[in-house]
Amino acid sequence: MAQSVRPAGTGSDNGQPVRRPPFPHRNLLGISQLDQHDIADLLLRAEAMIPISRQPRKVLPTLTGKTQINLFFEPSTRTQASFEIAGKRLGALVVNMSVKTSSVTKGETLIDTAATLNAMQPDVIIVRHPASGAVELLSQKVGCSVINAGDGAHEHPTQALLDALTIRQHKGRLAGLTVAICGDIANSRVARSNLLLLGAMQVRTRVIAPRTLLPKGIENLATEVFTDMEEGLKGADVVMMLRLQHERANGRMIPSVREYYRFYGLDAEKLALANPDAIVMHPGPMNRGVEIDPAIADGNRSVITDQVEMGVAVRMAVLDALLAEPSQVKS
């Protein structure tokens, strides 16, 4: 799957050390702050990280002596574990903090916690928060790098990067492909970050959802909008399903899970309308039988577990890009 077996910036074909230009950002708050070159650079760095996790000794100690704090104001298993493993494989000291938030003390906790953690001199804080913009607010209060691990319905940049990496691993390219994103677009940070990233990389995007789950103005975001899933899937190279928060949407945004599944759930019949070699993606965690047929989720078109693997590579690359000092990267 991987094209390269070389860790980031560790050497060239003729044996001379090469050094990537330093990554020009202190934080990764969203895809919106990146241009096409930044994205391509991060994907190259991530590709070089893939083999690290496949070798017996899974370590590339570019972040030895660095402190990484995972600060999660929203429950998460896979993203938090992915960042933790990424940091540890790079040799960083990783601390996990899960902050229970009550509606009264949410923001107070955010600012206060930021100031407290900052005083402990971390090198990077990875933040997930239920409010859009909260990660950027926190980044203004600390003196270290901040990585957005998901803020409200705003952005989830490492998810978009790992999705792009997965697509590129399977399709060999990004430009010119057609990606259909299906589900709760209105409340999805994954959809927003993906639309920004794919748009920057010349990928044609479509969003597919019932009108109640489409945010206003989405049609102006350089994407095609479909309310008929069958129409939207025709000719797609990639089908990206989103998790439906059905506990919240039921009875308000959709009448029932079974109606949603009938019209917007991905089953074999609907998938047959996409390109024959189309791949199926999902950021997880999946609701089998709500947005996706279990047979598809676990079938041979699904690349969902590859996404998880690419997630570690992408997060290693981002950490390395933001934190590694050039002097530490040696051939």
Binding site: S32, S132, G133, D151, G152, A153, H154, E155, R189, R192, P215, K216, G217, I218, N220, L221
Partner: peptide, 13 residues
Amino acid sequence: NEGLFATVLGLKG
């Protein structure tokens, strides 16, 4: 305000 701006910021309109 509901609209493209809210959608981009991920804020409810």
